[in-house]
Design a protein around this nucleic acid. Structure first.
Length: 132
DNA sequence: AACTTGACGAGGG
DNA sequence: CCCCTCGCCAAGT
């Protein structure tokens, strides 16, 4: 065959993006995921940087606002979007943000069940969504 | 082809 | 706990 370089790293390929959107689309309201985690789940040449770039081109129907950085904050202040736009949308879904625009990832971080091995996650054993 | 910027992450002070 | 620096990968110029 002519090509031997079938790279999944083709961010230019819709297939590459769709895989990211597919997971993001499954994120329930009131939950968030980090770029790094998405990259970790997808593996194959997916990195936080690339995922972020793909998310930049997220079409409607994809809750891109539920994807934040590992700091639990939104990085949208670097783009044309309003600085607190994403935070506002998450707050509307029940996500509480700190005065520094940061939320508790250990509480809101969500993982697809097909990636949940043996139940429970490896970072927080019992996410108490009750008030403190 | 090389340099710079960018929806990031982890580590160090 | 907060701020700064380095590293990564890809796109744009």
């Amino acid at each position: 065959m002519s090509d031997q370089n079938e790279r999944h790293t083709d961010v230019d390929s819709p297939r590459y993006r769709e895989r990211v959107y597919e997971i993001v689309r499954r994120i329930p309201a009131g939950r968030v995921m980090t770029y790094g985690q998405l990259a970790e789940l997808l593996g194959e040449g997916y990195t936080a940087r690339t995922v972020g770039f793909v998310m930049h081109a997220a079409p409607e129907g994809v809750p891109w606002h539920r994807v934040i950085n590992a700091q639990g904050a939104c990085s949208t202040g670097r783009v044309v979007l309003p600085p607190d736009k994403q935070q506002r949308m998450l707050e509307a879904e029940g996500v509480a943000f700190d005065a520094r625009a940061r939320c508790d990832l250990g509480r809101y971080r969500w993982t697809p069940e097909e990636f949940e091995d043996g139940g429970a996650a490896g970072d927080e054993p019992q996410p108490s969504l009750f008030n403190d």
